[in-house]
Amino acid sequence: MDKHRRSIVKAASYRVFATSLVFLVAFVYTGQLGSSAKIGLTAAVGKTVLYYVWERLWANIQWGVTEG
């Protein structure tokens, strides 16, 4: 089972990559850096929390896990 710290680092590092895409898409649609940054940051925070919860839920599911 992953430790909480590992789940947090995984979530944060993934968010950096995913937020870049959200920011880029928002900028293409709005053409405004400020609005794009707000959209990107809001999505990043919300999705980071959801990803962490998802990881912790799956850490408790033994399906597909092998010992060895």
Score class of each variant (00 low, 15 high):
1 M>L: 13
1 M>E: 08
1 M>C: 11
2 D>V: 15
3 K>S: 06
5 R>F: 10
5 R>S: 05
6 R>P: 00
8 I>G: 03
9 V>Y: 09
9 V>Q: 09
10 K>H: 11
10 K>Q: 11
12 A>P: 02
12 A>N: 03
12 A>D: 02
13 S>N: 08
13 S>V: 14
14 Y>L: 09
15 R>I: 13
16 V>K: 07
17 F>I: 15
18 A>V: 10
19 T>S: 12
20 S>N: 06
21 L>F: 07
21 L>G: 02
21 L>I: 14
21 L>N: 02
22 V>M: 02
23 F>P: 00
23 F>H: 03
23 F>W: 07
23 F>K: 04
24 L>K: 10
24 L>A: 14
25 V>L: 12
25 V>K: 04
27 F>K: 12
27 F>Y: 15
29 Y>V: 14
31 G>S: 03
31 G>V: 01
31 G>C: 13
32 Q>L: 13
34 G>D: 08
34 G>R: 05
35 S>Q: 13
35 S>P: 02
37 A>D: 01
37 A>Q: 06
38 K>F: 09
38 K>N: 04
39 I>T: 11
39 I>A: 08
39 I>S: 02
39 I>Y: 01
40 G>Y: 00
40 G>F: 03
40 G>K: 00
41 L>M: 07
42 T>Q: 03
43 A>S: 13
43 A>T: 14
43 A>P: 03
44 A>R: 11
44 A>I: 05
45 V>W: 04
45 V>F: 03
46 G>E: 08
48 T>Q: 06
49 V>R: 02
49 V>M: 10
51 Y>F: 10
52 Y>A: 12
53 V>F: 14
53 V>N: 05
54 W>A: 06
54 W>F: 11
55 E>G: 03
55 E>C: 12
56 R>D: 04
56 R>P: 01
56 R>E: 09
56 R>S: 07
58 W>L: 12
59 A>T: 14
59 A>G: 11
59 A>R: 15
60 N>K: 15
60 N>Y: 14
61 I>H: 12
61 I>N: 13
61 I>L: 06
63 W>I: 15
63 W>D: 11
64 G>V: 06
64 G>T: 00
64 G>K: 03
64 G>S: 01
65 V>P: 02
65 V>H: 13
65 V>D: 10
66 T>P: 01
67 E>Y: 14
67 E>D: 14
68 G>L: 15
